[in-house]
Design a protein around this nucleic acid. Structure first.
Lengths: 149, 149
DNA sequence: TTTAAATAATACCTGGAGGTATCATTTATG
DNA sequence: CATAAATGATACCTCCAGGTATTATTTAAA
């Protein structure tokens, strides 16, 4: 897979919360729908809060809500918020100092791949996902997970 | 990074060995040029041997040699030989059962990305890498590694 | 004001990828 | 045949992403 699990979780969480940008989602609600391991989910929600993409309301009836407009949150923003800083700019062979500086055959082909990835991540916002129904897809798929709260 | 370290190592090793397809490369030689941790390199070479992409000659003056023509070894072959079986066909959100079956917004965009990756991996052979000088790139870059045999 | 339902903080556990260490086996060559 | 130079097999070590457990804090509402 391209992303690590933690990043995947963040992408699912944010996409799910995009279904209703005004709503305060409790960790319980998110768990019930996404089936991400509960305690780990809690931890991630706190991290996402600190990143500023969402904010938390403590106390009874508390929860989390998006803190920006859907159109202002890109997939790349979410990936960064999840703490995934290995940006996709390495050379095919994993060299830091090779890619896009020296010439090699794969260089050009791979550059196209990397650019297409970055392009999707930067240009796709939660607004677009919501419009096209992606969050529903997330939620439905979540049913394949087993319950182990 | 897209690939795990072990896969990266396999890609570098095979690309390096493509420089001279008739030559028997000792683990020492490969280590001196690629600076992959020596004992781990030895292990990986054994694994690659078992995969059939290369074969080993034991005893004094032994080593490893490619067991197919350069044109018959694709990058994807190498990735598989390295034991990397998470083929790049998952849905953006990491679901096994979503991608390319159900519809979601990212589905289409991401399908293009995945296809471009697979396309590079399948269509690029060691022959092409050799022609265009990639193995030299590998070898030069290896100099950035520190010696800790 | 007490309680219950929520998040926050913190420390710990675990499996597996990446890496190391040791000894066994094979084989060219003096 | 003895030796040295190579690979093979196997067991172990280490770190960290992913996951768990516990206690503290906040706040709505009975």
């Amino acid at each position: 897979m391209i992303f690590c699990k933690t990043t995947e979780y963040a992408l699912r969480i944010m996409s799910y919360m995009a279904m209703n940008e005004k709503k305060l989602y409790s960790a319980n609600n998110i768990y019930e729908n996404l089936r991400i391991p509960f305690r780990y989910l809690r931890k991630q929600l706190t991290i996402l809060s600190k990143s500023g993409l969402i904010f938390s309301v403590q106390g009874k009836n508390g929860g989390y809500r998006l803190s920006k407009n859907l159109s202002e949150i890109s997939l790349l923003d979410i990936i960064h918020a999840a703490g995934d800083n290995q940006i996709y700019n390495e050379c095919f062979f994993g060299f830091q100092s090779c890619a896009f500086k020296k010439k090699c055959a794969l260089h050009y082909k791979w550059e196209v791949v990397i650019e297409s990835i970055n392009n999707v991540l930067i240009s796709t916002t939660l607004e677009e996902l919501k419009k096209t129904g992606t969050p529903d897809c997330i939620s439905k798929n979540s049913l394949i997970f087993t319950k182990n709260k």
